[in-house]
């Protein structure tokens, strides 16, 4: 079973990296999302795969049952998902803002930062 998961992780990573190589900002963002999914799956697999009960303590017990899964990788993934959610939302807002101010989502058109003080442009826009 691990092998299937290993292949899915590598497939997801491949897709993510392919998308990140694009010049389109939205595609790059999707690439990041898929790559972080691959990372989450990787944690899940490396935490040890077993077909067992979910790690919830039953009402009449104080500790986890013998057959329960290891809750730690799941907790890690949950944390990573929440953080990833916040970052991707923020990055999406940034892309929208870039589209609004620069008027393009292609990285070729985005060289305002590069212009400042560059010897290849005469006088950059004043900023500060």
């Amino acid at each position: 079973m691990s092998l299937i998961y290993a292949f899915s992780v590598s497939a997801l990573m491949g897709v993510g990296i392919y998308l990140m190589l694009s010049r389109h900002l939205m595609r790059m963002l999707f690439g990041v999302v898929i790559l972080s999914t691959a990372a989450n799956l990787l944690i899940f697999v490396s935490g040890g795969l077993q077909a067992v009960a979910p790690p919830i303590i039953q009402g009449d017990m104080n500790i986890l049952g013998e057959t329960a899964a290891n809750p730690l990788p799941q907790a890690l993934i949950l944390t990573a998902i929440v953080i990833g959610f916040a970052l991707v939302a923020f990055a999406a807002a940034l892309v929208l803002k870039a589209y609004g101010t620069i008027g393009s989502v292609f990285t070729d058109d985005q060289n305002d930062a590069e212009r400042l003080g560059s010897p290849f442009y005469e006088e950059g826009p004043r900023n500060g």
């Binding site: 807002a93 929208l96 803002k97 589209y99 609004g100």
Partner: peptide
């Protein structure tokens, strides 16, 4: 709110 308020150019 920021997403909805901004009309992309």
């Amino acid at each position: 709110f920021r997403f909805y308020q901004e009309e992309p150019a």
